[in-house]
Amino acid sequence: MLEYLWLDDESPILKQIPIEYTSAVILFSPFIQMPEGWEKAKRKNNDEHIYPNDEEIREKGKAVSWKKVMSSCGFQTHAELALALMTSIGALRDECARGDLAELLHANVKGDLFYPSEDHISNFHIPSLMKVLSYNGSNQFYYSEPIWENSGFLDITEANLRTVLDDAAAELILTDKKMDFVFMSVYDSFINVFLAKGENINELVQRMGWEAMICDESTYISWYR
């Protein structure tokens, strides 16, 4: 089975993936909107860092697009928002960091609006995960967590996907049983990578309602620089 792929920034994504995969997509994990007053009710003191857990996100959270946050911040591109996010979590070196963008982001993402899930596949993607993983008739999916050397097959159910996403470490790969489609988390980021074999990827992205960027021959994993 396909194991986790470490995508470096030395060559384009399409140069690094197995040859049978003809398309790659960067999926933007949605921001998380909790009900009004949720953060204040959860906070015990002013210094406490509050972030909803997976169950709270599924039960009460709503997905907020990058485009909506870009509009609030006055950003013109997804790359500017990615730079702001990466800077704010300390994932960029000094020469690449954009403190000005991070400050704008902090000013607009506060209260009951939270950053996307970092390092992980978003819970908001579970409905489309179920559709894509069973798209070609598969009734099971394969998961692999290289950090814990944990892998296996499970039936494609919402409960099983929830369990895998909840328990996964920062590196996770999901494929259908036929390995036609691949979902990968990306460490220190707010995106996932999706790979496909011979599919009209633009049509699939639109059908799934993903906010995404189709990779071309010049797209690197550090696409925002």
Rank of each mutant, 00 (worst) to 15 (best):
residue 86 M to R: 13
residue 41 A to R: 14
residue 57 I to R: 11
residue 70 M to A: 02
residue 92 L to E: 13
residue 81 L to T: 00
residue 72 S to L: 15
residue 65 S to T: 10
residue 48 E to D: 12
residue 71 S to C: 05
residue 64 V to W: 06
residue 69 V to Y: 12
residue 78 H to R: 11
residue 72 S to I: 01
residue 66 W to T: 00
residue 60 K to F: 15
residue 94 D to C: 01
residue 45 N to L: 09
residue 48 E to Y: 11
residue 67 K to I: 00
residue 55 E to Q: 11
residue 80 E to F: 06
residue 45 N to V: 03
residue 77 T to Q: 05
residue 75 F to P: 01
residue 72 S to D: 12
residue 74 G to F: 06
residue 41 A to H: 07
residue 62 K to D: 07
residue 79 A to H: 09
residue 69 V to Q: 04
residue 92 L to W: 12
residue 66 W to E: 03
residue 55 E to V: 08
residue 95 E to D: 13
residue 60 K to G: 02
residue 82 A to V: 00
residue 77 T to I: 00
residue 46 N to I: 13
residue 91 A to P: 01
residue 69 V to W: 11
residue 74 G to V: 04
residue 89 I to T: 05
residue 77 T to M: 05
residue 86 M to P: 02
residue 51 Y to A: 06
residue 51 Y to R: 12
residue 53 N to M: 09
residue 84 A to T: 01
residue 61 G to M: 09
residue 66 W to L: 02
residue 50 I to H: 10
residue 61 G to F: 10
residue 89 I to R: 11
residue 80 E to L: 05
residue 93 R to Y: 14
residue 75 F to R: 04
residue 41 A to D: 14
residue 79 A to N: 09
residue 77 T to V: 01
residue 83 L to P: 00
residue 69 V to I: 15
residue 79 A to D: 10
residue 49 H to Q: 11
residue 52 P to R: 04
residue 88 S to Y: 08
residue 46 N to W: 14
residue 68 K to D: 05
residue 80 E to W: 08
residue 94 D to K: 12
residue 91 A to T: 01
residue 52 P to T: 03
residue 44 K to T: 08
residue 44 K to S: 13
residue 64 V to A: 07
residue 76 Q to H: 14
residue 44 K to C: 06
residue 71 S to Y: 08
